[in-house]
Amino acid sequence: MDWPDKKPGGLDASEKASLGKGVFKKCDGCGETLTTETLHTSFEVCTCGHHHKLSAARWRVLLLDDGHLDEWDAGLSPGDPLKFVDDKPYPERVATAKKGTKANEAIEIGHAKIHRKPIAYGSFVFSFMGGSMGSVVGDKIARLFERAAEEKLPVVLLSASGGARMQEGILSLMQMAKTVAARERHRDSGLPFLSVLLHPTTGGVAASFAFLGDVNLAETGALIGFAGPRVIETTIRQKLPDGFQKSEFLLEHGMVDRVVSRLDMREELAMLISHLCSSPRP
């Protein structure tokens, strides 16, 4: 589809809203108006290079052979250990998230292939409660590493999460220890873990397994850090410099191996797997 020549003019606000809805989207990077279809085909990457959020379902299509994931442990749901209520009870919040995202939880894991190489694959579903890590997410990540170690598979895990899931309180904190321990077991199997950090990766996910990849790849322009920018600004009482905690900043500070455009991710991952799995294991 061609780019629209100019923005539709001469309409009042209400008409604009109804016309624009679902058809056009303004790029968060350059401000140019694009059709949603154009963005969809380019996996939400604008011609200016700005990366908009991509759903877990589209990541599958982008990365995996035939876009296929043979999903593991899809049926796990969280309990309500704290009987936590904010403006609604936690189970209701989970039910709403399930309905809104058509996902069962904030991560999907399973067996897949990239360039015909079998891998254990995990991908956060950020739209599900901000990709927050509660008991189910923690458990599925542990299962991912454990099963990958058993089945002798490299792990590719895409993180996009605001951190621990507050509604599960201290139990969500414990998932950090659980996932890291499982990652260490997988490390002992001699197989690589490729950690892909998407926008945003912060808090308990950043501070557990996400930086423990044998190779860490950050997606272009992602916000990655321990504390969120607002928390830091409140703590130090000054404005943060431009680009702070962005992928490029992390590369500069030695925290990630490469900053990779989403559109190159499949090739980059395939090449890394072929390098790291090229020698027979001792």
């Binding site: 501070a207 557990s208 930086f211 423990l212 321990f226 925290m255």
Partner: peptide, 21 residues
Amino acid sequence: AYPGLGAEERGQSEAIGSCLA
């Protein structure tokens, strides 16, 4: 853990993750 500028620059997340490991 301290949420500050230097802490982020020097990899607070990685430091905690590696500690857990």
